[in-house]
Design a protein around this nucleic acid. Sequence first.
DNA 1: GTCTATATGACGATAGAC
DNA 2: GTCTATCGTCATATAGAC
Lengths: 219, 219
Amino acid sequence: MTAPVRIDRRARRRLETIEEIVDVSVEVMTEYGVGGLSLGEVARRMGMRTPSLYVYFDAKNGVYDAVFTRGWRAIYEEMEPLHLQETDVQDLEPFLLAVASRFVRWTIEHPSYAQLMMWRPVPGYEPSADAFAAAVDVLESARAMFTRLSARGLIRADVPVDDLLQIWTVLTSGVMTRQLANAPHESFDEGRVTATLPALVAMFVTHYGTPATTKGKKK
Amino acid sequence: MTAPVRIDRRARRRLETIEEIVDVSVEVMTEYGVGGLSLGEVARRMGMRTPSLYVYFDAKNGVYDAVFTRGWRAIYEEMEPLHLQETDVQDLEPFLLAVASRFVRWTIEHPSYAQLMMWRPVPGYEPSADAFAAAVDVLESARAMFTRLSARGLIRADVPVDDLLQIWTVLTSGVMTRQLANAPHESFDEGRVTATLPALVAMFVTHYGTPATTKGKKK
DNA sequence: GTCTATATGACGATAGAC
DNA sequence: GTCTATCGTCATATAGAC
């Protein structure tokens, strides 16, 4: 009767250790760059020796995979409530600006996660199927939002949702890329690239919104 | 009287070696990833020992800097003639689509260069002042183009050229980023992200072009 | 000027003792 | 589960041969 309890405790302890390894790894990546992650440095900060980490991860890429997965889960939690909120939307533009801003803000405030998620900074690392699925969840959440906006007549019905989604992700990841590559030390609020978001969203809405959503507006 | 000749020959030989190191480095980066550049592998392919490379470069980051600089110079040669060509432009949209396409095509066809130039894949490497200047030249060439388009009444005069430029670079680097990160093996012509370029440029022209440039067109 | 031999310290990773 | 010991590789530095 006691065996399962002990197993549970060990399993929980193990999971806690794994989480701590990921925490510290993100710290190290933030200080030394995504590709600068050193298992030796992680072990040092945890008071361990490097080989001990291999009890929890098969390889360094396993740590990257855990960071990748956790990042997409975190951004899902961040975006999903906002994506669902559009049932109240009368005016498309401020809503889409809020969506874009929240996404980009998260990437600027979590640059290590974001670079690993959006770029390909680490030679030899490719996300596993599970990790990739976490990324797809976020994309599908956005697709569902556009589908609803389209069905409710807020967005042009003649444009395939896939096209909208592709263009939308180009806009958001373009802002994120230029801000993080050119001026990584600027915050979201003071960023000279993030400042273009209102104009980009306005452009998007002018082109893909229906007249109903832009009434009373002029160039 | 012969001394100068010998010096010239040596200097030329030295420059050729430097160029070869950069050539081989790009090859290695293309095979193993930008961050996967190994000076040992470069030396091996050149039939040298690793330390010999240090005769030509102070450090690995010097090689990255040479690649970075050469990339921006190459893209300048690629874009400058097209930027100047707009004196003949009657119709804004096809012209800007040609500009965007040529830029993005180059990045897709030179992914190692492009990742080093547009992302920050290498921890500890930051472009030197000279390298940075090569990048600024390209930006200034594009800015001059927008200034002329604006002066000729093809683009809204009430929008600052800096804003146009910022938005324009977000669009192009967004396409490049998503294509190279998500489907790096797709060519420019078959890419599912590069395929959005016409829609993105149309969006840009609808919003920032003057009525004169979009006459006879409908949504 | 050009290249090599050699050495240093850090890295990711593995094997095996406790 | 954690350790020590070890391997191969890496960027880099130095000293010296030609």
